[in-house]
Measured scan of single mutants.
Amino acid sequence: TVKFKYKGEEKQVDISKIKKVWRVGKMISFTYDEGGGKTGRGAVSEKDAPKELLQ
């Protein structure tokens, strides 16, 4: 599970739902399947990112 803040809201998403991951400076950005055909997005700092996300 990845915990992150998006627009001031605390969120979390299961690693299995993450589609795409990329690095922006010291942040790790990602998109994930929100269900219902929607794609969500989020970002975590490199130090807070789970190891599975960095692979």
Rank of each mutant, 00 (worst) to 15 (best):
D33K: 03
Q55I: 14
V24P: 02
R41D: 03
G40Q: 08
L54R: 09
T31K: 04
K7W: 08
S45R: 13
R41E: 08
K20A: 11
T31D: 06
F4G: 02
Y6K: 06
G40A: 11
Y32S: 00
R41G: 03
V13C: 08
G42P: 00
E9V: 14
P50K: 02
R23I: 10
V21W: 11
V24K: 11
Y6A: 07
K51T: 12
V24Y: 12
T1L: 15
K3T: 11
G40H: 07
G8C: 05
D48Q: 10
G42M: 03
S45K: 13
K20Q: 12
G36L: 08
K11N: 04
K51C: 12
P50I: 06
K3A: 06
G40Y: 06
G36Y: 07
D14T: 07
K20P: 01
A49G: 02
K38A: 08
K26A: 13
G25E: 03
E9R: 11
V44W: 02
E52K: 08
G37L: 04
K51I: 15
G42V: 02
G8A: 03
G40N: 06
V44T: 04
S45I: 08
A49Q: 02
S16R: 10
F30R: 00
F30W: 01
K11Q: 06
V44R: 02
R41L: 14
T39C: 11
E34F: 06
I18S: 00
G35N: 04
S29W: 15
D14K: 08
V21T: 06
K38C: 07
K17W: 08
T1K: 13
K19Q: 09
E9G: 07
Y6M: 07
I15G: 02
Q12Y: 12
K51E: 12
F4E: 01
K3Q: 07
D14P: 14
G25I: 02
D48T: 10
E46P: 07
K5M: 14
K47W: 09
K20C: 15
V13K: 01
K38P: 03
L53I: 05
D33N: 04
K19L: 15
Q12E: 15
V44F: 03
R23W: 14
D48F: 13
E46N: 05
R41W: 15
I15M: 12
G40M: 10
E46D: 08
A43V: 14
T31V: 09
K17L: 12
K17I: 07
G25Y: 04
Q12L: 11
S29D: 04
E34T: 09
A43I: 15
K47F: 11
K26G: 14
Q12S: 14
